[in-house]
Design a protein around this nucleic acid. Sequence first.
DNA 1: GGTAAGAATGAATTACCTTCATCAATAAAT
DNA 2: ATTTATTGATGAAGGTAATTCATTCTTACC
Lengths: 300, 300
Amino acid sequence: MSILERAHLEVVRAVERQGSLTAAAETLHLTQSALSHTVRKLEDQLGVAIWYREGRSLRPTQAGAYLLSVANRLLPQIDQAEERLKQFAQGERGTLRIGMECHPCYQWLMKIVSPYLAAWPAVDVDVKQKFQFGGIGALFGYEIDLLVTPDPLYKPGLIFEPVFDYEQVLVVGPGHPLRQAAFVRPKQLSDETLITYPVETERLDIYTQFLTPAGISPRRQKSIETTDIMLQMVASGRGVAALPRWLVEEQADKFDVAPVKLGRQGVAKQIFVGFRDADAEIDYLRAFVNLARNHRDNKA
Amino acid sequence: MSILERAHLEVVRAVERQGSLTAAAETLHLTQSALSHTVRKLEDQLGVAIWYREGRSLRPTQAGAYLLSVANRLLPQIDQAEERLKQFAQGERGTLRIGMECHPCYQWLMKIVSPYLAAWPAVDVDVKQKFQFGGIGALFGYEIDLLVTPDPLYKPGLIFEPVFDYEQVLVVGPGHPLRQAAFVRPKQLSDETLITYPVETERLDIYTQFLTPAGISPRRQKSIETTDIMLQMVASGRGVAALPRWLVEEQADKFDVAPVKLGRQGVAKQIFVGFRDADAEIDYLRAFVNLARNHRDNKA
DNA sequence: GGTAAGAATGAATTACCTTCATCAATAAAT
DNA sequence: ATTTATTGATGAAGGTAATTCATTCTTACC
């Protein structure tokens, strides 16, 4: 009845990664013969070929490709479970895997993480930023335990809590004509170079909440990965950017930049943390959420 | 390095289900001794107890409870993978697991399924309706392959396509004062008994798009699982309900009911099918989506 | 055509899991 | 309280199955 074992998934993954049975055997600390036998047996039992034998190399069949996708999906979860059980053994509590779906949140997260690590010495924190299936997918897929995002999603199985409000502002460099303005209108950006994080336009607030509704596009757009470089670019007059006000004010002594309100009303943003409700009672996860929320309350 | 095997997960699950090692051994076609050895070895290797030995019974430790949750999550996925691989072998293409997040869609789905089964004799169809983590969670968690829902969610990793438009109408029985009305206003329902499917109010269009915006509640609300019974209740004057117009018109010969437009504009609805973009190229899945979409086009 | 590299095969060995037999502990029953 | 039945633990024996070793087969490349 039961055919498919963890070992089989490991083999499929290793062959894919190493490119050959022989090489895979080495990484698995087995002989080539052992793998060959294992593979043949698996194919016999399933009744399906996993690889085409093309000359002396292996190319996955359709079934093989499917099996590979299963392996890539399940093995990390098994590894993680094993890891976590071993951590139980050492009295450690585990690893809190945090996913981030918002670039500037990183600076904010760092402020939460250090007191958290101090308060929970037995818990490690891991921050991930890229997700094949998006943050929500990563939560459902048990790749992460906590998601920091501006887009909450109230779906059964997930809990989102607001942890942080801020105002999104335009950042301008020294001598910029808008520097003294009380606020900026969309039209005034039509001749500017806008520096953004490298994500889709739909995920950039300055578009969705400011430019797009007014039907305006900036003359040029550049994307920059890191906040520091972005600020440096702005400070050197290469363009303008949109960032949280608190971040701009904090960095104002390091970089010669100034915040300008976006529109007469300003653009208000809110950051949420989301987690699986099955995890709601994990004390160290709860503690992180509380810490994050209190951080906001202390500022307010 | 690798400790946790599929067999271990099976053991944990069986012990939980059967309540004792001895009983679990039987379902796994093993001796009690074998399980005892296996368990001890696993606990030794992980360095953590999985069960408290309380007298002659086993109670999961914290680690055990965690392991159990892992087993319940991963084992079905492994089973399904194995299943699917075996289906590859028999030239079958697999099982299309469809999730439904909208009650009246069931009638519609049935119309699609029968031509589909005829066109794809090697593909089985399975329809599920209850999801612990909601339809989206079920998609991400590989519990289903296709989700039929009124709430699309454009997130990376998922694709949603509209397949069906309809008008949501009020259904009234014979001799109902509203029966001849051109349309009904929210206020006119404040003295009625509203019959709905047993889901949260936020998922009922007649609330979200009609009653709630007007600040009206019906005098009473009853919930009924099945559409047929619901129509029977309406036909016997026990209350009114909200259903798709096409469904009401189709059933008008079986039940003495009539549709009434909700508001002057009517309430327009759209049904979507969603799937993982990783599956976008699976021919039999694609075929279902196309069939569903064409079904709409034929009607229009 | 020769050679090197990779995969397949068959027999021998080894490792490990299962069983058997038995014990220990506990809950239920007399 | 003593007996009895049920459940889990343990150690040794046994058997199955996976791994290795030695070899062959195929093919890419020089």
